[in-house]
């Protein structure tokens, strides 16, 4: 009895050590956001929270349209996530569980596109957006991102393990067509996987920087990350303000993740019991 308790204690200690390493830079970001730039440059630097958070945040609000860019980011992240979840899981289900002429070649192409360095296509993609008149709009951020190789690949690997072939076979015997098999059999079984993909997509869309920086040409209508980069000046850097901005930008993500993380733990348990 005590042996297992001791083991559990050791386990938690090991996990907590990892947590410390994980959280330290985040903690320090928060420390910097609550102090002045001057405090940060001190040697040794301040390692505890200061009283300056609100004045730093006030300067963020003074310098950028925080609420406007937050709204844009929320719209982009939500739309992208919903579309990706649907398109990717449907394609992944097809690749994971069916063989059809060309499926190997098509999946190969998908992987190849994933290997192309993203920086390569930034400029030509911008020219396309100019020509179809989407420059400066959130469409240019949402539509190209609404299905991606990464998500299809991940869901395919996940579905291979998470959806038993027997279940699909049974549904087919019951007369369910392809889309019904996806909707009624696969979707309920892959909820934890979807939760993960949803979070990753949401975070990716939230933190995306290089592409919005180029395509959102109207500086008064940008996403949060682009607005933050406007804070980061080249020669006079007000670090504590930048850090306050960074903190504001990640806070909503942590909340989203906390909510989702609870959701999919419960789902996973149910799935396991039912399966």
């Amino acid at each position: 009895m005590t042996a297992t308790r001791l083991k559990r204690l050791a386990l938690h200690l090991a996990l907590l050590a990892g947590v410390l390493i994980s959280l330290f830079p985040f903690y320090w970001t928060a420390v910097m956001a609550t102090n002045t730039t001057r405090d940060m440059y001190r040697t040794p630097p301040k390692l505890v929270f200061g009283p300056e958070l609100f004045s730093n945040i006030a300067r963020v609000f003074e310098n950028i349209d925080f609420m406007g860019s937050l709204l844009n980011t929320v719209i982009v992240a939500c739309c992208t996530t919903v579309l990706v979840l649907f398109f990717d899981s449907l394609a992944a289900f097809t690749f994971a569980k069916y063989k059809f002429p060309g499926h190997r070649a098509l999946f190969g192409i998908l992987l190849l596109t994933f290997m192309l360095p993203a920086q390569l296509s930034l400029i030509p993609q911008f020219v396309i957006m100019v020509n179809i008149g989407w420059v400066g709009t959130v469409k240019a951020l949402i539509v190209p991102a609404s299905a991606n190789a990464f998500g299809i690949f991940w869901m395919r690997q996940y579905i291979k393990g998470a959806v038993p072939d027997e279940l699909i076979a049974a549904a087919r015997l019951d007369g369910a067509g392809f889309f019904r098999q996806y909707w009624n059999v696969a979707l309920p079984a892959i909820r934890p996987g979807l939760a993960f993909l949803g979070i990753f997509t949401f975070i990716g869309a939230w933190n995306d920087y290089a592409w919005p920086l180029i395509v959102m040409t109207d500086p008064s209508n940008v996403t949060l990350q682009v607005a933050l980069s406007q804070l980061n000046t080249s020669h006079n850097t007000d670090f504590s303000m930048v850090m306050a901005g960074a903190l504001l930008a990640i806070a909503p993500l942590v909340v989203v993740f906390a909510v989702f993380a609870r959701g999919f733990v419960a789902d996973a348990m149910k799935g396991a019991l039912r399966g």
Partner: peptide, 8 residues
């Protein structure tokens, strides 16, 4: 760590 801004 994965959600934190890389610049920060």
């Amino acid at each position: 760590p994965n959600v934190t801004s890389l610049v920060a």
